[in-house]
Design a protein around this nucleic acid. Structure first.
Lengths: 144, 144
DNA sequence: ATCATTTTGAGACAGCTTATCAATTTCAAT
DNA sequence: ATTGAAATTGATAAGCTGTCTCAAAATGAT
């Protein structure tokens, strides 16, 4: 079992080493759970891990997910009233068309848009790690 | 004094009429203050308006800004731990490059991206009303 | 002007996240 | 392997943002 996510584990260890932080059972556990998903909230992970590890505290999960952000493995995204922690490894495929009439959501991907995003970023001296694109409007049925 | 933002005021009145809502002194006041900015938080507006109107409640500002969202004049955007209310009239200038290292925000506009967004929407039978595009990454200084 | 309806303001309340702190764990140096 | 300074954990308190409550006030159709 395990022995997956080797690359990410190395990245975490490197970050820990650089900052005089320690590798703990909880951090390993949370990393493995985190890497299995595309994105998750702290609360969701808390419930998910409670089955195998009932005494893992919610605060530890928050601390650890924020640590992953610092280490460049995760990225926090505020959505609604909660914070989603996105798995950096799964980037792309995250654009949405949202109908404000019926709340239908259509996912899409467009390479040309992504390329232009890179262009804009470069012009401004940025290196993009992730992005978020949402188009709000009316779908064919809600247009009347 | 005043007599500005006529178009938006008409739009608000139309929304109020359709939903059996009333035009109040506070709603006019908050609308005028809101339209002067590109985006603002409820808390910031609370402090801003406290000088001229010390008894305007924070709850009223939240309610009113959410009303503007319903009326299509504003758009809520969660950023950090707070909600930014964006002025729709300034759209086209609403895309952001956000540095995850220092939280610096660079605004940009790109017609080609907007055109491709329209294209994607049309392909899916949507008519876009607004959009949100945020690119997250590291600025030139935070890249080390 | 009247009056049913809506809105306001103030504070209580709720949800999500971080801070606190004693007890435990890690890990580098024996 | 043992030690001990430093970091981490878990439980809960505290903090922050935003919404709800409700009596008093304002609106606007009649």
């Amino acid at each position: 079992m395990a022995a997956k996510h080797v690359k990410e584990m190395e990245a975490l260890k490197e970050h820990l080493g650089k900052h005089q932080l320690k590798l703990t059972r909880q951090r390993e556990l949370i990393l493995n759970a985190f890497l299995r998903q595309e994105h998750i909230t702290a609360e969701a992970m808390y419930h998910q891990l409670a089955k195998s590890d009932p005494h893992l505290g919610l605060a530890t999960i928050y601390r650890t997910l924020n640590l992953f952000c610092d280490a460049g493995l995760a990225q926090a995204r505020h959505f609604g009233s909660q914070t989603q922690y996105d798995n950096i490894a799964h980037k792309g495929h995250h654009d949405h068309l949202i109908c404000t009439g019926c709340d239908k959501i259509v996912e899409f991907e467009n390479c040309d848009i992504e390329r232009l995003q890179e262009e804009v970023a470069t012009q401004n001296g940025f290196i993009i790690k992730t992005h978020r694109l949402e188009l709000y409007g009316l779908c064919s049925r809600c247009r009347h």
